[in-house]
């Protein structure tokens, strides 16, 4: 018995060293190490102003302001253009702002309004000095204290955001305009409808393809489908990449998303639903299977003992 445990020890030690070498250690050597900041966005300016919702509403909904391009369903404001027209006009479809106050970091929103290319970390692509303007114009102020006005707008967006945002809606608003998710039956135009006639199915497919072509022209390539990205990348990679795409992939045209920590958790929950749907079942059944093997082993041990008694 002592001998057997000694042998087992040798086998386990060599196996553990081997495992450590090809898994944890090799991965630290193969991938760039990026420290996250848990969605603190410390490179952006902090504002101390307290926003006024009423004034924010006037600024957001006013003539020539946000609603000139963005829809806000929460206050029954329809987007001025449909997705296909918008993508032709701007290169990218401007998001509906209903959930923005609930999903994105307050700090990020304020900086985004003031200087979109900077907050989105796409200045390498949109350099105003070279005449390459970001499709979303910077906010130059409405005549009063600009910082106060920005705080007001953010306060308004926060006030209209729903209390509960489902993981799916979080995904749709934060990622869905560029990334399809075929396992979740989502394309860049939203939920992929099912049609009775093949003609309609094909028409929709063509609309999606046309949208994707515009998107390709804007982004340089078609952003990947995110159906199973939760298993293709580590959790740490996804978190730091969403927090700051440039940190993991320098020069990428993907903008910083600006999610708050809670917003990211929601998006992650949706990606887990589509990419790792068995997680719940796995965690539910796992302990029972292990318990079974444990009982099996104990019984087998007793059998072995009785068999070897006289040997």
């Amino acid at each position: 018995m002592k001998n057997e445990l000694k042998i087992l020890g040798v086998v386990v030690i060599f196996t553990a060293i081997l495992y450590w070498g090809v898994e944890p250690f090799a991965h630290t050597q193969m991938h760039k190490h990026v420290d996250g900041e848990h969605f603190a966005y410390s490179d952006l300016n902090e504002s101390t102003k307290k926003g006024n919702v009423e004034n924010g509403k006037t600024l957001v909904m006013g003539a020539g302001a946000c609603t000139g391009c963005h829809g806000i369903q929460a206050v029954a404001h329809k987007a001025p253009m449909d997705a296909a027209t918008a993508v032709s006009a701007y290169g990218v479809n401007p998001p509906d702002l209903s959930t923005a106050g609930g999903l994105y970091s307050e700090k990020f929103l304020a900086n985004l309004i003031e200087n979109p290319a900077h907050a989105l970390k796409v200045e390498h692509k949109f350099d105003a000095a070279k005449g390459k303007m970001h499709p979303m114009p910077a906010f130059y102020g409405a005549g009063g204290d600009k910082a106060q006005e920005i705080a007001d707008m953010v306060a308004f967006l926060k006030s209209i955001a729903p209390k509960e945002i489902s993981p799916k809606n979080a995904y749709l608003d934060a990622c869905g305009r560029c990334h399809a998710n075929r396992y979740g039956k989502l394309d860049q135009l939203g939920e992929t409808p099912t049609f009775k006639s093949e003609t309609d199915t094909l028409k929709h497919k063509v609309a999606v393809l046309e949208y994707q072509d515009k998107l390709k022209a804007y982004m340089g390539k078609l952003p990947p489908d995110l159906s199973i990205i939760i298993r293709a990348r580590s959790e740490h990679f996804l978190e730091t990449f969403v927090e700051n795409p440039q940190s993991q992939l320098e020069g990428t045209s993907m903008p910083r998303v600006g999610l708050s920590a809670e917003g990211f958790e929601k998006v992650k929950a949706y990606l887990t639903q589509t990419g790792d749907p068995s997680k719940t079942a796995r965690e539910a059944i796992g302990p029972w299977v292990l318990l079974f093997t444990l009982v099996f082993t104990v019984l087998a041990y007793l059998w072995k003992k009785s068999m070897w008694k006289d040997h």
């Binding site: 090809v22 087998a300 068999m307």
Partner: peptide, 29 residues
């Protein structure tokens, strides 16, 4: 009887991997 006992110990290890630690066998790439 000894084989089956060793098999039991192995199965604990195996199913632990199946349920909780499978990435080493299913490369993310």
């Amino acid at each position: 009887s000894k084989d089956v006992f060793v098999l039991g110990v192995y199965l604990i290890f195996f199913f632990y991997l199946v349920f909780y630690h499978f990435n080493f066998a299913m490369d993310p790439v």
